[in-house]
Design a protein around this nucleic acid. Structure first.
Lengths: 181, 181
DNA sequence: TTAAATTTTCAGAAATTTTTGAAAATTATA
DNA sequence: TATAATTTTCAAAAATTTCTGAAAATTTAA
């Protein structure tokens, strides 16, 4: 299991970026490795390729499974577990979005909703609640957007994208025709 | 500088979430505090309110300034620096998106572009490059999307959102009329 | 100027996260 | 079943990140 120069660089870059993307270095490297290799790999191969301990690989694989980014495969006549990415790059992107929404947005939305039930008792709380309401509405808008985009096919997305700035124009038109909501 | 029960909870939640959002606990708490308070605060007030050292506050404020999320204000007759959030919640959200794109996406896009210039020398590299190309195109699509959305007014966004699933329908219609892209 | 007020820096301490590797648990085969 | 192969767990070590607080630097006012 030797990595080409290029694969090496890709994997290592992913390792560096991974903390910004919500997982730790090893997890990022394992994922990058599986993305870049065409065949599935077992834990020992991963351990060797990345120079990390067997136990660490085991934990990393579990984490990636909890993200639903990789899947286990068995090869007949081989006792080892083999792993590959779960779907195409864009499948994985969708999964990451959904999973990050759950971890990064949902808890905050839920907290905000709770707070918005209370009645503010003074100026200061009035202002606080105002801000929280704004944040709440924004996060909700974003998650709904995300859900819509997630449900669109890659082609539709492309198509919408090509419309580009035209989207705004189209909206104006619609507003003119239908009447500003 | 005493915080209400509610403000306290909000600030503390932000502190917990902040590592998932790309900054450390103190930075998250300082931001939350400034979001929730209606008047600007100086470093000592922040330090007291959050029970963190003066030096830590100084570093946190610098970090938040580098994110362009807060701005400094001077109060006539007072030597201290005072800080408030830079704009509304949605202004800040735009800034965070842009800043995160710079930190989380741009470096990867640039690495991928480099790799895509090379010619693969075997099956394995062929596959690797295929994957990288897919990732590259996806990231580019996403950043373009982000840029568009960022340029739209809050009202336009709302309006587009209200269209909801209708967007796809509209696209189909457009494809029918204009001919598939 | 000078001195007081304020902010910043940064070395070391504390806290947190990641990693290792050996033992325990599980799974597959004979 | 017994045993060999494999995976998982987890305590302790290593690495990294965050935080403190005192000293240095900067800014402001007298």
């Amino acid at each position: 299991m030797k990595l080409s120069q290029k694969a090496e660089a890709f994997v290592s870059h992913f390792g560096e970026m991974s903390s910004r993307w919500g997982f730790n270095r090893t997890v990022g490297q394992i994922l990058a490795l599986l993305v870049v290799r065409s065949s599935s790999l077992n834990a020992d191969e991963i351990s060797q390729a990345l120079h990390i301990s067997r136990g660490n690989v085991s934990m990393g694989l579990k984490e990636l499974q909890s993200w639903r980014l990789i899947r286990l495969e068995r090869i007949p006549g081989d006792r080892k577990d083999y792993f590959t990415t779960a779907g195409s790059i864009s499948d994985m992107a969708r999964t990451v979005f959904e999973e990050r929404r759950k971890r990064e947005i949902d808890p905050t939305l839920s907290l905000l909703r709770d707070h918005l039930l209370d009645t503010p008792v003074n100026e200061e709380e009035e202002h606080a609640q105002q801000q929280m309401a704004e944040l709440h509405d924004l996060l909700e808008l974003l998650t709904q957007w995300g859900a819509h985009l997630n449900n669109m096919s890659a082609e539709q997305l492309q198509s919408l994208m090509k419309l580009g700035a035209g989207v705004s124009k189209m909206l104006e038109l619609k507003d003119k025709v239908v009447g500003k909501n």
